[in-house]
Amino acid sequence: MTGELLLEVKDLHVHFPTPDGVVKAVDGLSFKVHRGETFGIVGESGSGKSVTNLTALGLIDREKARVSGEVLFMGRDLLKLSAGELRKVRGKDLSMIFQDPFACLHPFYRVGDQIAEAILCHAEMDKRRVKARVIEMLDAVGIPNPESRYRDYPHQYSGGMRQRAMIAMALVHNPALVIADEPTTALDVTVQAQILELIDRIKKDFNIGVILITHDLGVVADVAQSVMVMYAGRGAELGARDRVFNQPLHPYSWGLLESIPQIDQKGTRLVPIEGAPPSLIHVPKGCPFHPRCPHRFEPCDKERPDLVDRGGGHPDACHLSIEDKKRLWDERESRRSKVIA
């Protein structure tokens, strides 16, 4: 990794007690994010991606959740900060972009004023300088005619422009780390590519760290340097992008990779992952993926595999031996790429 360590999540647990049982949304998760990298978090919906990051920012209701572990951000444990201290970090050194740009801006306030508010809650500045800064940021994220667009309301913006405005809002204080939670899921495909490109560009221009959450491995393939595959609130595999894509070690990652279309390889089959994601109240014992795993063997329903380096070159949480992993993945690859006549 290139830059300094920005975020270190250590053994994070987030459990929600509900009348039906305890929802183990995050259950022993650890990872690190550095300056200058885009860290992709991938997993099916319901795997705990949003809860992880909302917990880090203190945006979940701590009364309703049991949280343990550490979230070290630039050396401080965010889980131990008071609400007031956390507020000073949010939107300043650590900011967040959300999934649905249609719902994330207040419909009754001008876009420019909403960004101005983000500036003023961490800095004292006179009105004219705030406005100049907002216009500068709108320009930086590629919004045309930023002076006149300042005065528009969110409904006068397109989806892509609203997401650009959200990105501008996240960047006003030159944060160290930006968390983007499915920033392109709600957008058209062409707009998705533009927004990803923008996120990649601001990461380089501002030299920040980015956590990019998505359920789409294709998104991560384009812009991330590191990837964590999440399953049922835990890490299944964690490594450099090229390693995870070329030598994936976990059967769940194999399933994810086989379910994305590859335009350049004609005739490859799309294979869906069998079964449904587990209930987070009754998480399967042992490896949570074992009921859906075609390669399961004795230990899988008994022992929980931790996310550690098992000789595969990067950490994974699967009991199979490294030889078996290599062989099985190669077999699956060759089976899949057989041209269907």
């Binding site: 920012l57 945006l59 507020r87 000073k88 970090v89 949010r90 939107g91 300043k92 900011s95 967040m96 959300f98 649905d100 719902a103 994330c104 801006l105 207040h106 419909p107 508010e117 983000a118 809650c121 961490h122 959200m166 809002m169 996240a170």
Partner: peptide, 12 residues
């Protein structure tokens, strides 16, 4: 969501 945004940007 826009209330969550308001909190996320650090508003009191």
């Amino acid at each position: 969501d826009y209330i969550r945004t308001a909190r996320a940007k650090g508003l009191p």
